[in-house]
Measured scan of single mutants.
Amino acid sequence: KRLCLVCGDIASGYHYGVASCEACKAFFKRTIQGNIEYSCPATNECEITKRRRKSCQACRFMKCLKVGMLKEGVRLD
């Protein structure tokens, strides 16, 4: 089984260019469509796991980008 490159949960397929789970796919889409900017309360190096993926949105979004999710893949309509 493929794992989500962002949080390590089971991937539902390839989304925005990267093997990812439904939760991270939806999080990435919401962030881009809403043009949301997050800031990390710590040092921008929070560990993102299935259990902790909700704890820091800034680091989760940075990890989405780091593993290769493409903003261009999100439709803005």
Rank of each mutant, 00 (worst) to 15 (best):
C21D: 04
G17R: 04
K54Y: 14
A42P: 02
M62S: 14
D9A: 08
V6Y: 03
S39P: 14
T49K: 11
C40P: 02
M62R: 11
C24Y: 01
C21L: 03
M62F: 11
K54R: 12
A11L: 06
L3Y: 15
L65W: 02
G13M: 03
S55A: 15
D77C: 05
Q33M: 06
G68K: 04
E22T: 08
R51T: 11
C4G: 02
N35Q: 13
A58E: 07
A11Q: 07
R52V: 12
E47C: 08
R53V: 12
T43L: 07
M62Y: 04
L3F: 15
K50M: 14
I48W: 07
R75F: 12
G34P: 00
T49E: 12
R51S: 09
K66Q: 11
C24V: 00
T49I: 06
G8H: 10
F28I: 02
F27L: 08
C40L: 01
S39G: 15
C40G: 02
R53S: 09
V74A: 14
C4M: 02
S39L: 15
G17K: 04
L65D: 03
A42N: 13
C56T: 02
S39R: 15
C59D: 04
R2M: 10
R60F: 15
T49P: 07
V18M: 15
L76H: 12
R52S: 08
I10D: 15
E47G: 08
A23H: 08
D77V: 09
C21Q: 00
C59Q: 00
K29G: 14
S20W: 11
F27H: 01
I32V: 13
F28G: 02
G34L: 10
K54Q: 15
R52L: 14
T49G: 11
V6G: 01
T49C: 00
G73F: 05
N44L: 06
G13Q: 07
E47I: 04
M69I: 03
V6M: 00
G73D: 14
M62G: 11
K63Y: 00
R30I: 01
R30P: 00
C64A: 06
R2G: 08
S20L: 08
G73W: 11
D9S: 05
T31E: 02
T49R: 08
Y14C: 13
S55D: 15
C24E: 03
K66R: 11
A11E: 09
L76S: 10
V74G: 10
A42W: 11
S55P: 15
R75Q: 14
E47Y: 08
M62H: 04
C21N: 00
K1S: 06
T49L: 09
Q57H: 05
C7Y: 00
L76P: 10
A19W: 06
R60K: 14
F61M: 12
K29T: 15
C40M: 02
E22F: 04
T43P: 05
N44Y: 06
R75S: 12
V74M: 09
L3C: 05
Y16E: 11
L70Y: 02
M69Y: 07
A11S: 13
K1D: 10
L5W: 06
S55K: 14
M69H: 00
C7I: 00
E37C: 08
A11F: 07
C56P: 02
K71W: 07
S20T: 15
K71C: 12
V6W: 01
A58H: 04
V18S: 05
A23E: 14
G34C: 07
V18W: 02
Y14G: 12
V67F: 07
F27A: 03
F28M: 06
F61A: 04
E72S: 11
K50R: 08
F61R: 04
C46S: 03
F27G: 02
H15F: 08
G8D: 10
K25T: 14
R30V: 06
T49A: 15
C64Y: 00
N35G: 15
I32D: 02
R52N: 08
M62P: 00
T31G: 04
R30T: 08
A19T: 10
K63T: 07
C4D: 00
Y38L: 05
Y38Q: 01
L5R: 08
E45S: 08
G8P: 02
L70Q: 11
A23S: 12
A26N: 04
E72M: 04
K29F: 09
C59T: 01
K50H: 12
R51H: 10
L65N: 01
E45D: 10
L76V: 13
K25M: 15
A19D: 13
G13R: 02
S12T: 09
T43F: 03
Y14A: 14
A26G: 14
F28A: 06
A23C: 14
Y38V: 03
F28P: 02
G8S: 09
I36M: 10
F28W: 14
A23P: 12
S20K: 07
R51E: 14
K71N: 09
E72P: 11
R60T: 13
L3A: 11
I48E: 07
F27P: 03
G13Y: 01
L5N: 07
G17F: 03
S55T: 15
K29D: 12
G73T: 12
G68M: 01
V67Q: 04
E37D: 05
E45L: 06
L76M: 12
L76R: 10
R53M: 14
C21P: 02
R60D: 01
I10A: 15
I36S: 04
Y16Q: 05
L70F: 10
L76I: 11
L76F: 09
T31M: 07
Q33H: 07
L5K: 09
F61W: 14
Q57V: 07
R52D: 07
E72Q: 08
G68N: 01
K1P: 01
M62N: 07
G8M: 08
F28L: 05
E22H: 10
S39K: 15
L76E: 14
A58Q: 09
M62V: 12
A11N: 08
A11T: 06
C40W: 00
K63M: 09
C21E: 01
L70A: 12
S20M: 06
R60C: 12
C59R: 01
V6K: 07
A42Y: 05
S20F: 04
Y38C: 06
D77H: 13
K66T: 14
E22R: 04
K1I: 04
A23M: 14
L70I: 13
M62I: 08
E72I: 06
L65Y: 04
Q33Y: 11
F27C: 09
K50S: 08
A19R: 06
S55G: 15
N35A: 13
K50F: 13
Q57P: 10
T31K: 05
M69T: 03
P41M: 08
A26H: 14
I36Y: 07
Y16P: 05
D77I: 03
K54N: 14
L5C: 05
S39Y: 15
C56L: 01
P41E: 13
G68A: 01
E22V: 09
Y14H: 11
A42I: 13
L70R: 12
G68Q: 00
Y16A: 12
E37A: 03
A58W: 06
L70N: 13
T43D: 08
R51G: 13
T43R: 13
Y16R: 04
C64L: 01
R30A: 06
L5A: 08
C24N: 00
D9E: 14
K54I: 13
L65V: 10
F27W: 03
K66F: 03
H15Q: 10
G17Q: 02
Q33F: 03
K29Q: 14
A58T: 04
R52Y: 04
F27M: 04
L70V: 14
E47D: 13
L5S: 07
K25N: 15
K50P: 12
N35K: 12
C59P: 02
I10F: 13
T43M: 13
K66S: 12
N35S: 09
E22Y: 08
F61S: 04
K71R: 11
F27I: 04
Y38F: 11
S12E: 11
L5D: 04
F27T: 02
E37M: 02
G8T: 10
R52C: 01
R75L: 12
I32F: 09
V6E: 03
L65Q: 10
C56Q: 04
I48F: 06
C24G: 00
C7D: 03
E47W: 06
F61V: 06
A42H: 04
I32C: 01
Q57T: 06
D77M: 05
K66L: 04
K29P: 01
